[in-house]
């Protein structure tokens, strides 16, 4: 159990996907200007990460490893993630239209989100079991959501801040990222 908690904390805050692994920077800088959007995006990413981790674990252990074709992992993972995103999108559209309206536009973007592919690659690299993969992807999603929401809150304020013209927008967002990174170092002693 403590092993699982340590995986969760490590992926969620200490080795946060955005802040310390630089995965998923596009949504971090792109959609994170409103807290509501950030929340929806974060939930959508967490959902896809969870399903993708489970699917890639089965692919890894039922196809790639038994047939000794682990070198095919990149092509398999990316196709599976693309297909999963389509299926999840269809499923949500059929079952819950209001949820679809909230998350819908973010789902297609997730296919090329490095955070999702990144977490499946990390799980494979660390050779996590099924349960560990699930915990690690949940941690990754929660960490992603957390940073996206924090960042969007800061950026709502930044919009009205009086920054030098050449710093406005992306450059100042990068500097905020740097400061967030420094604060997250505080979590280092947790494991």
């Amino acid at each position: 159990m403590s092993e699982l908690i340590s995986i969760f904390l490590s992926v969620a805050v200490i080795n946060n996907l955005i802040i310390s692994k630089f995965l998923g920077l596009c949504p971090f800088f792109g959609v994170s200007k409103k807290i509501g959007n950030a929340l929806s995006m974060g939930i959508a990413v967490t959902l896809v990460m969870l399903v993708a981790s489970i699917a890639t674990w089965f692919i890894n252990n039922l196809i790639l490893i038994p047939f000794e074709i682990e070198y095919m992992n990149i092509i398999m993972y990316i196709l599976v993630i693309a297909a999963l995103v389509q299926i999840i999108e269809l499923f949500i559209k059929r079952t819950n239209l209001s949820l679809y309206n909230a998350l819908g536009i973010y789902l297609p973007l997730i296919t090329t989100n490095c955070a999702v592919l990144g977490i499946t690659l990390i799980n494979a690299q660390e050779s996590y079991g099924l349960l560990e993969s699930i915990v690690s992807s949940l941690g990754g999603g929660v960490g992603f959501l957390l940073v996206l929401v924090i960042m969007s809150g800061i950026r709502e304020k930044l919009e009205i801040a009086d920054a030098p013209s050449s710093m406005r927008g992306l450059p100042v967002a990068m500097l905020v990222g740097a400061m967030l990174g420094l604060t997250f170092f505080g979590f280092g002693g947790m494991i």
Partner: peptide
Amino acid sequence: PPGAFLVMGLLLALFRRMGVMKGE
């Protein structure tokens, strides 16, 4: 990692200042 954000942010601002990078 924070150093990466710091350097990147300052470089982006510098390039924009020099007129290489268009505003958003």
